[in-house]
Design a protein around this nucleic acid. Structure first.
Length: 489
RNA sequence: CGGGGCGUAGCGCAGCCCGGUUAGCGUACCUGGUUUGGGACCAGGUGGUCGCAGGUUCGAAUCCUGCCGCCCCGACCA
């Protein structure tokens, strides 16, 4: 059966769609722009959730849940934020259907059931949350308020791609309130750091930490911190943002507290989020022309055991033993005892699904006291003695995790270029793509103009960069550090 | 919103231009058998409102009109 994947070099975007479909991550749905996340794709999301949730809780955050709908009057309270999202909002205007007298068996919107005030389906929850925080916060003793929610949001996108951009998506959004500006900035940076650590240590996806330029900043934020990853096709992916919101929402929603000196002050705020988009990033960081490649720490199944040629008792006995040993080490294992498909089919199938380690057990192996271990990242196969197999796999999973990160890092390093002129920027973008480090005069107008000319935007102003005197590649005005330009998803 | 493409079995497609038996192929699925160390083979079988509505015709998947939906490229995208 031909489960062919389009080659990356042939058509990267088709390759991506093939992986998503053939690895069983998602399906199109009857709703334009909305996808069905299938069990295997959702399992990856659950792994991400579990880890992030742990990291949030370790830093003092708690989960809560706020409504899907936001009354229009609340939504528009913080003007910049409202403006930023206005063009992509879904709006609920009615609350009832009725039988259509002109079309038997069909329903119509009941014109008598018009809402007095329209409800916006949340594109993000600042408005409804800050309206609630007003009631929750009275004194400095109520601060800081550190809340996260796992939720779905809707942004009516013109053009969608599975995971990377869909009309509805799943994410977490943290919303915190603080007594001081410094503490709020600190909070945004703590989360920024958590996101970077999650991306690198769990997704094995190298990221550059930085700040957004004014143009790219979250609407309603004073400062946006971002982690930016580089995909295999040379395009950048914004993978997680953490915003310092100043007192913008506190003022819009009148959220004040009394200090210990009995003075009334507005609180300081942050918000931060990562979404199912990370799954898109995961795919485009590691996968190859044979299918998905998953880092062990996020693989729903880390090891699959395939009996060769079929699950006969003596083989299953060994399979069960290895399974028990691995489970005792906290490693997730699947024994494929299905008799319908042959081993070759299973090999291809599990490669498509990106399972990090495959164990093949055949009679010939058992006679020699070994099993065959294949790693997904390099496709290498080794014979490993039965006595040491579980220790071997435990270490192999760590090796794969590390190798994936190093491989992605090496690619990013190779795809990062210092550019010193507009001509060079365009040339690099059109040939190898990637991150282009260039001097910029710091103005929105210049960024806008460069975007017009090259379709590249400033992905971030890196946190860790060497200060270096230079001249803006467009205007020639002085600049103190290079920023990252790239074409982005 | 512009430009292009597509809608026929779960999936992928042919048939349409030039109307005519019972709508076909691959794959998947079911049954039986032979196989089995990298996507097995043979035989038999199940499965279809041909996107929807209307029109032309003795007769429409095929021609005409209208509608709906999806995909791709672009514009847009904290």
């Amino acid at each position: 059966m031909a489960k062919e994947i389009t080659l990356r070099e042939e058509n990267y975007s088709q390759w991506y769609l093939d992986i998503v479909k053939k690895a069983g991550l998602s399906d199109n749905s009857a709703v334009r722009g909305c996808m069905v996340i299938k069990p295997y794709g959702y399992a990856i999301w659950e792994k991400m959730q579990a880890q992030l949730d742990k990291m949030f809780k370790e830093t003092g955050h708690v989960n809560a849940y706020f409504p899907l709908f936001v009354p229009k009057s609340l939504f528009e309270a913080e003007e910049k934020n409202a403006e930023g999202f206005a063009k992509e909002c879904a709006i609920v205007t009615h609350y009832r259907l009725k039988n259509d007298p002109d079309n038997p068996g069909k329903l119509m919107v009941d014109p008598n059931a018009k809402l007095e005030e329209e409800l916006i389906v949340r594109p993000t929850s600042e408005a409804i949350i800050w309206n609630t925080y007003r009631d929750w916060i009275q004194s400095y003793r109520d601060l800081p308020l550190l809340i996260n929610q796992w939720a779905n949001v809707v942004r009516w996108e013109m053009r969608t791609r599975p995971f990377l951009r869909t009309a509805e998506f799943l994410w977490q959004e943290g919303h915190t309130a603080h007594a001081t500006k410094e503490e709020a900035i600190q909070e945004a940076k703590i989360i920024h750091e958590i996101y970077a650590r999650f991306a690198e240590d769990f997704m094995a996806m190298p990221v550059i930490k930085g700040s957004k330029s004014e143009n790219e900043r979250f609407a309603g934020a004073d400062d946006t911190f971002t982690i930016e990853a580089l995909m295999q096709d040379g395009k950048a992916l914004q993978a997680g943002t953490s915003h310092f919101l100043g007192q913008n929402f506190a003022k819009a929603f009148e959220v004040k507290y009394l200090t210990s000196e009995n003075k009334e002050e507005y609180v300081w705020a942050t918000s931060w989020g990562v979404s199912t988009r990370l799954i898109g990033g995961l795919i485009m960081t590691h996968s190859d022309d044979e299918g998905l490649v998953l880092p062990p720490k996020l693989a729903p199944i880390q090891v699959v055991i395939v009996p060769i040629p079929k699950p006969e008792p003596e083989i299953m006995l060994v399979a069960d033993r290895i399974n028990d040993e691995l489970k005792a080490k906290g490693i997730s294992v699947k024994i494929d005892s299905d008799e319908k498909n042959r081993p070759g089919f299973k090999f291809a199938e599990y490669e498509m699904k990106g399972i990090p380690v495959r164990v093949g057990i055949g009679k010939r192996d058992l006679e020699n006291g070994v099993v065959e271990i294949a790693r997904r990242d390099t496709k290498e196969k080794t014979q490993v003695s039965l006595d040491t197999v579980s220790q071997y796999i435990e270490k192999l999973l760590d090796d794969i995790q590390e190798n994936l990160f190093q491989r992605a890092l090496a690619y990013r390093t190779a795809a990062t270029t210092n550019v010193d002129s507009m001509e060079q920027l365009l040339e690099v973008l059109d040939t190898k793509g990637g991150f282009c480090l260039a001097h910029w005069d710091g103005t929105s107008e210049t960024e806008e103009k460069i975007k017009e000319l090259t379709k590249a935007t400033i992905r971030c102003i890196p946190d860790e960069s060497i200060l270096e005197e230079g001249k803006c590649i467009l205007t020639g005005k002085p600049s103190k550090q290079r920023v990252i330009f790239a074409r982005a998803y």
